[in-house]
């Protein structure tokens, strides 16, 4: 395993789930829970003749940022596309529940220091959603995650991190949307319906899934940033993600609540305003909206480096 300092400087996009988990928490602080040594593998894959992984394609554990315990869930896209089944779904839910219980214990044991010791959940998504080999169990796990999220509301932040090759799609796309804060690098993508399915539903002339630039404009980090669906757009190093997470860790919950997109009547009303705009405008391309929000030359935005983009971009203003 690389040294922590080297990890911080290395590419998030190229990192595996375990490197990301270690690098998103303080040096030497990460303890893996239910790691490969425990050999909790999927009971359903062997029936279909599919190989198992000893961590079921997900690294879960706890680290620290300062005094904050950081409960980490990190998905490995190289194992069945990071898809969610019974065991890794259970690991995900179990980690969130551990964080919520930890928050209650800290409230009780360190009532005066809760802000400084408040736990957080960090989820590094790399998944297409439900694992089709055990589809029904995977589906049910998604509902459990949303349920566990709701239990954490107003108590501790849940941070979504997307910057790995597979992106974050299918059911995990709305799980990501339901978190408090979203951090992405330029390569990150979040969506519900994958490009191939949109092409199948709408026809190739409406949406060509092989057009990478179009796919990226529709679901990529720059689009999400302009729409207000990505709170931090960072450089592609593990250290940049760590810095953004550390920034959130110290924010008051009331500030974090303002970074959310959904989860209250007020936020739903705001999103309904956006849906109305899109329904009236009937955009053919995300660039139509970029222009609407004041970007005179939207076609230039995808070419810019992250730093240049952040300097010039105009985003949807939230009420």
């Amino acid at each position: 395993m690389q040294k922590w300092d080297e990890l911080e400087k290395s590419s998030f996009l190229d990192a595996n789930a375990r490197q990301r988990a270690i690098g998103m928490t303080d040096k030497g602080s990460f303890t893996e829970l239910l790691g490969p040594r425990d050999r909790f593998t999927s009971p359903h894959l062997p029936v279909l003749g599919t190989a198992v992984e000893f961590d079921d394609g997900m690294v879960t554990g706890v680290g620290r940022i300062g005094k904050h315990p950081v409960f980490v869930i990190s998905m490995e896209g190289k194992f069945i596309g990071g898809a969610i089944g019974e065991v890794n779904g259970g690991k995900m839910v179990g980690t969130i529940r551990l964080a919520e219980k930890a928050a209650a214990r800290i409230q009780k044991e360190h009532p005066d220091e809760y802000a400084a010791r408040r736990p957080l959940v960090v989820i590094s998504f790399e998944t297409g959603g439900v694992r089709l080999h055990e589809a029904n169990a995977g589906l049910l796990a998604h509902a459990e995650v949303m349920d566990a999220f709701q239990d954490c509301r107003h108590k501790l932040p849940i941070i979504c991190v997307v910057g790995s090759k597979v992106g974050c799609f299918g059911g995990m796309g709305f799980v990501a949307a339901a978190t408090d804060v979203i951090i992405m690098n330029e390569q990150g993508r979040i969506g519900l319906t994958g490009p191939e399915v949109i092409e199948q539903e709408m026809g190739k002339e409406e949406f060509d899934a092989s057009n990478k630039a179009l796919v990226y404009r529709t679901t990529g980090a720059k689009q999400k940033y302009i729409m207000g669906d990505c709170n931090y757009l960072v450089e592609d190093t593990i250290g940049s993600f760590y810095q953004a997470i550390a920034d959130v860790a110290d924010k008051p919950m009331a500030e974090i609540e303002k970074l959310r997109r959904i989860g209250s009547v007020k936020l739903v009303e705001e999103q309904m305003g956006l849906v109305k705009l899109v329904g009236d405008m009937q955009p053919k391309d995300a660039m139509d909206l970029w222009k609407y929000y004041g970007n005179e030359k939207p076609e230039e935005l995808p070419e810019l480096s992250t730093a240049e983009f952040l300097k010039v971009v105009k985003c949807r203003v939230r009420n």
């Binding site: 799980v175 709408m202 949406f207 959904i262």
Partner: peptide, 22 residues
Amino acid sequence: PGKMEEIAGMNKATGSYQLALA
């Protein structure tokens, strides 16, 4: 499953209904 849905964020719409139910 459409393009406009992905541009505006269908994931937020379905996510918000689930959070409301929870």
